[in-house]
């Protein structure tokens, strides 16, 4: 079977572009597999203490990822744009203590010895969820909408 000349040309152009892109990609930097230095446990990590420029492999200033109270509260926005930078310091299980398909123990109970960590639903959230759910249903949906619904189904029928 003979291909039309125009199609052959297009295929060659695509292959050439892909080869050029691949060659170019080899020169692109990548993030390190893990952070080269151990970080203090329980501190509000300030990346800019050591990094005053953009991290190799990430075209963002390190200060953007300093774990300020606002960052911790809104970390979903940062993780959604590049969770590979998060993965330099955190295992996936760090996220999945809260964000999972099926959470067995409330994170604040699992880590009862770490009251300094930001954890959702501390104390008896059963009462409060009747208020908070009406106030901001989107905040429930982010974790329980399409996953982790087992406890919800026990009552919401």
């Amino acid at each position: 079977m003979r291909l039309p000349p125009l199609l052959c040309g297009a295929l060659l152009l695509i292959m050439g572009t892909m080869l050029a892109a691949c060659a170019g990609m080899r020169a692109l930097p990548g993030l390190p597999e893990s952070h080269p230095e151990a970080l203090a446990v329980g501190q509000q990590v300030s990346c800019s203490e050591c990094h005053d420029d953009n991290q190799k492999g990430s075209l963002r200033p390190q200060a953007s990822f300093s774990h300020t109270p606002s960052f911790v509260k809104n970390h979903r926005l940062y993780a959604a744009s590049d969770d590979r930078l998060c993965a330099v310091c955190h295992k996936s299980s760090f996220c999945n203590d809260c964000h999972a398909g099926k959470v067995e123990i409330k994170p604040s109970t699992k880590y009862g010895y770490r009251p300094d960590r930001e954890m959702p639903h501390r104390g008896n959230f059963m009462t409060l969820h009747r208020i908070e759910g009406k106030l901001d249903p989107a905040s429930c949906y982010r974790c329980h909408g399409r996953a982790n619904n087992e406890r919800c189904i026990a009552c919401h029928r």
Binding site: H35, P36, E37, A38, V41, C89, H90, K91, F94
Partner: peptide
């Protein structure tokens, strides 16, 4: 063991 290693993930 992640807390004991240099730069290991947690």
């Amino acid at each position: 063991p992640v807390f004991s290693g240099k730069g290991e993930k947690r």
